[in-house]
Design a protein around this nucleic acid. Sequence first.
DNA 1: CTTGTCGTGTTATCATACAACCCTGATTTA
DNA 2: TAAATCAGGGTTGTATGATAACACGACAAG
Lengths: 267, 267
Amino acid sequence: MTLKLDKVNRGPHLSTLVASSISREIAQGRLKPGDQLPTEQALATTFGVSRNVVREAIARLRSEGRIWSQQGRGAFVVESNNPTVLTIDYEALQRADSFRNLFELRGILEVQAAAFAAKRRTEADLTAMGAALAGMRAAPYGSVAWLRSDLEFHRAVAEATRNGYMGQFLGFVSERVRESILAAGNQQKSDDMARITLGEHERILTAIRAGDVEGAQAAMRDHLAGAALRVGLHDGETAAEAAPVPEAASPVRHSRLRKAVRGQAAR
Amino acid sequence: MTLKLDKVNRGPHLSTLVASSISREIAQGRLKPGDQLPTEQALATTFGVSRNVVREAIARLRSEGRIWSQQGRGAFVVESNNPTVLTIDYEALQRADSFRNLFELRGILEVQAAAFAAKRRTEADLTAMGAALAGMRAAPYGSVAWLRSDLEFHRAVAEATRNGYMGQFLGFVSERVRESILAAGNQQKSDDMARITLGEHERILTAIRAGDVEGAQAAMRDHLAGAALRVGLHDGETAAEAAPVPEAASPVRHSRLRKAVRGQAAR
DNA sequence: CTTGTCGTGTTATCATACAACCCTGATTTA
DNA sequence: TAAATCAGGGTTGTATGATAACACGACAAG
């Protein structure tokens, strides 16, 4: 048996804890946009860590676009509440409704990507898709090679849109969806599925090659509906029902707080 | 006159430069997934900075999910090449084709959001949208209050999709688009525009209230086409032509490199 | 009222030291 | 011989002190 021990080692770094703590202060409004943070020295003493750790935490928050600092002045909470990075909380994705929502978003992007691909694909794109399909045919269903080819096919479609952001976003969303599916691990495999899935992909490629925008959209929609069924999502149309907006906050569990971190940042 | 001096202060931190440099090594494949990075000491000497700076850079990369490190062993490039966060390079967005691509992506999301909103909106959603529209009517075109109400309207639409990720992504993309427009600053304002823009929004709301999915999509499409014209994008249909995939690398300009950073990380 | 100077406080960076930990290989032990 | 133990070096994590660069207000000089 392969025992399934989750990685509880998530961020044993002090800087991670400090960053989360400050992040929480911001999220919960105790530090408002435009506010100045305490000095690094003050933070270091209140948290009971070295100034170095505080600096690493601040570097992280700065890269996330939550705070902004200037030499000689101080560090400030950034004005716009929209951070410059987009993150998806892994824990939240375990909830069925969240997963369904993300799957829905992926569907939107994939279908439109197929449409643009049908309009803008080059010969190179088509051969790339064909190669990916061949890889799927050659590999056993569900194997690593099969999954890689599957991913490659969708990547090629995204590439064919000639819109880099499309590929970036689609890749990001798909990866999160894939992770979540793997984590759940309740996939059943059968020979029929291989044939069906392959057929779906082939129809997509055919439509894209023909430049058939509507057809490509429809084929991709079919494919996603099939995929939804295969991973256990039923009736993808009525997806989200009163799902609260998932906040991007507090990805760190408190139970594992270390002795040093016990204060609040700035009261 | 208000002279227009941009903030060139973007990231004068050494740690940012180091992080970008390592990030580029990964993106360009000189550091493959699973590879071990040079030791912090080695990086510090090759970059000509202190180990502290290297640590801040690594803390940042770790928070972005690109690197994984363990005490006593070393730091490694994470296996999946898909980072756990999504970022958009601000500099790249200044290029017209990039901006066009992002605008196109926004359009996809907005149109589909309108469709879902028409299907799933509640009374509360409708009143929120109505309030936002009222705010636009009351404020002068282009003013801060007007922009806020505009943003609020679109946020309400996204909220009405009952899909939190939709709101998250849409907000993220829209914010980047808005920043870019503000940075360009070549907006011309007229009274006609206020009326036209307001009308577009009203049609969207009407369709959503009526539960008219097709109508909401069409109205939103019109609105975005109008917005594209207003910000100087012409013929949004043939957006990207042979635009290379924008890699998420090198957000730092080299001309401003400081004396210390001149090496490569790990060859 | 403007300008220049100075002192203080803050961030940015450097340098060093130590603790915790992993890995390897030799040594001891069964 | 085979396994367990232990010592050593190497690496990351953290602490500490010092210096440079910068911002800002106070204050004097013009």
